[in-house]
Design a protein around this nucleic acid. Structure first.
Lengths: 176, 176
DNA sequence: ATGAACATGTAAATAGTTACATGATTCA
DNA sequence: TGAATCATGTAACTATTTACATGTTCAT
């Protein structure tokens, strides 16, 4: 389970409130580890109970906004986890199951859904490419930047692969 | 949640007992939707309660083995699901979170773990390629076969991408 | 002062994981 | 006959999702 460490990483990059983290997740690390705001708030409470982060109330903000910062113990935990045993990914790919099912029964409206999925992946690819142009116009000099770019490029490669796959599946389903 | 439909698909391809399904998952559809034997038994009980599958006791087998078969209502449900709305994948990729973390703290033994992961993906790729040579020496003629091959080739593409990614990450972490 | 937007949180349901238990057959 | 193996299952726990609730500030 990577959520607590994804949050610690995000807070190590920059302190922030729960809602800010939720938005940051939507744009950044959440592309690789999704989380709802409920998950994030619950996890922040746990991280605070473990004394890995601390929170201070933010005056003059709507709601009862709290700003979280990572503590030295939290950074130490993040470092421990970074080098800890790494399991192979637990793959759960609904699309592949669907296509195997489509080999056994009539696929019905699956081509329509594949079209929608194709649009989603094209949009995601465009988003990643825009982020790349904006944040990495030149090769980064720091190790941090190089790692961020490596991960971003993997996102780009993933979306391209998905697009090609959806196109191939559509071609196959449309030519019986 | 695709598990019930992954099981229905597997039973549509061929009837079998819970333990046989668990083994079949390990070799086939489970590469895209993992499940433990406990999950499979629980789900089979649900599918039986929904009258989508039926079970008959197998005489002269160890334990109290039961053979499951898909029923017409189950095939109909599988068909409905195949064309139903398809959500974009919920990505949870621990490796990417690790590498982002490695940009913020000392990566410690991460290179060692990356090496182990690299071996895993190379082995997985070899497995897929062996399956491909064994089961698809010639282009399949049936739609079912074409879809199975499409999915298998996506698995191969995924493993290749992972291997390239692990190698790039290792190169980056080793050259500071 | 009131409604809109924001920030945080509670509660319940579902899904997945881990550890352990039980019954039946096979084989030394 | 008893240990090993196989097949099925129970129980407890953790993680994730979905729906809803509450309090605060800001702009009208």
């Amino acid at each position: 389970m990577s959520l607590p460490h994804a949050i610690l990483t995000s807070l190590a990059e920059r302190p922030g409130s729960g809602s800010e983290l939720a938005r940051r997740f939507d744009r950044s690390i959440g592309h690789f580890w999704q989380a709802t705001h409920q998950q994030i708030y619950r996890e922040l409470a746990r991280l605070e109970a473990s004394a890995w982060v601390e929170a201070t109330a933010v005056e003059g903000a709507p709601g009862r906004k709290r700003r979280y910062r990572i503590l030295p113990a939290g950074r130490q935990e993040l470092e421990r986890w970074t080098g800890a045993a790494l399991a192979p990914p637990a793959i759960r790919d609904e699309l592949m199951v669907r296509l195997r099912a489509a080999g056994e029964v009539d696929p019905g409206d699956l081509t329509h859904e594949l079209d929608r999925l194709l649009n989603h992946h094209r949009a995601q690819l465009a988003t990643y490419e825009a982020v790349r142009e904006r944040d990495f116009p030149h090769p980064p000099a720091s190790r941090t930047g190089l790692l961020q770019l490596l991960v971003l490029d993997e996102g780009i490669a993933f979306e391209r692969q998905r697009i090609a796959f959806c196109e191939a599946a559509l071609a196959l389903l449309r030519n019986p």
